[in-house]
Amino acid sequence: MKTGELIRRYRKMRKMTQADLAEACGLSDSAIRNYELGNRKPSEAHVKSIAQALEVAQEALLDVDVDSVRKALEYLFRIDEGTGLKPARGAEGDVFLTVDRNSPKAPKLSTALEAWMRQRERLDAGEISQEEYDAWKASFGMSDL
């Protein structure tokens, strides 16, 4: 999803109008409208203020393009280089991702993955709604990491 689409998604999730969001982050209504329509791209400072107003992590508003397996794989390659997340093979031959315990970032990554797994299990068990799960994903990392 593009940044503008993500701004719209989280704004609506928070039940805010464009005017509400503009006021909350000190921007004009037209700036928010143009960001959401993709006519303009917000600066890093504007992304930060919009994320704060929406109570989401800045990273939740990043334009991450994974519309192909190759693009998704490239992100995984980079994650491997930066955090120690790597592929492994299970006893039955399945491929899965695991954390290299020797990586300096392994403890934080393991903690984050555990939190994600718990929330995913709650979603699958019907304990939380898809909307609650999406809100958790968007805000995770603001103070957790």
Score class of each variant (00 low, 15 high):
T98I: 12
L61T: 01
Y133W: 12
M117W: 08
D94M: 12
R40G: 00
P87S: 02
Q130W: 13
G82K: 00
L73M: 07
P104Y: 03
G84C: 03
R101H: 15
E132C: 03
D80S: 13
L73P: 01
A51Y: 04
D63S: 09
W116R: 15
G93C: 03
D20T: 09
R118C: 12
R89Q: 10
F140M: 05
L6K: 14
I128D: 05
I128Y: 04
T3M: 01
A72P: 04
G38K: 03
T98Y: 14
R101N: 14
D63G: 07
E55H: 06
G141Q: 06
D67E: 07
A72V: 11
S43P: 05
N102Y: 09
G93D: 02
R122A: 08
K15P: 11
S110M: 12
Q58K: 13
I7C: 03
A112P: 09
D144Q: 14
L123V: 05
D63I: 05
E5M: 14
V47P: 01
D124M: 08
R40V: 02
S110N: 09
L37E: 12
L85P: 03
K2F: 04
V95T: 15
R11N: 05
Q130E: 11
K48A: 09
K105C: 05
A91C: 08
E74V: 04
D29K: 06
S110Q: 13
W136C: 08
S43D: 13
A24W: 02
I32N: 11
G26K: 04
L109C: 04
K48T: 09
E92N: 15
L54V: 07
L97S: 15
R78C: 06
F140G: 10
R9F: 08
V64E: 10
D63V: 05
W116Q: 08
S103N: 14
R70K: 06
P104R: 02
L62K: 15
A60G: 13
E55G: 00
E74Y: 11
A115E: 13
G82A: 01
Q58P: 09
K41N: 09
L113N: 06
D144F: 07
S43N: 04
D134Q: 06
C25N: 07
E127W: 10
L109W: 02
A91Q: 06
L123F: 05
G93T: 01
E55P: 01
G38N: 05
L76K: 00
S49Y: 05
R78A: 09
L37C: 06
L113A: 10
N34V: 00
P107W: 04
E127Y: 08
T111D: 00
R118A: 11
S68P: 10
L85H: 04
L113I: 13
T17K: 00
C25L: 07
R14A: 12
A19M: 08
A53I: 14
Y133K: 01
Y35P: 13
R120V: 08
D63K: 06
R120C: 07
M117H: 08
R70Y: 03
S139K: 11
R33S: 15
S68Y: 10
V64M: 14
R101E: 15
A22Q: 00
L6D: 00
P104K: 03
G141P: 12
S110E: 14
T111W: 00
P104C: 03
K12F: 15
D29A: 04
I50S: 00
T98N: 14
V69T: 13
L109Q: 03
E36S: 05
K71C: 05
I7L: 03
A91S: 08
G93K: 01
P42S: 09
A135G: 07
R8C: 10
S103A: 08
A19K: 11
E114K: 15
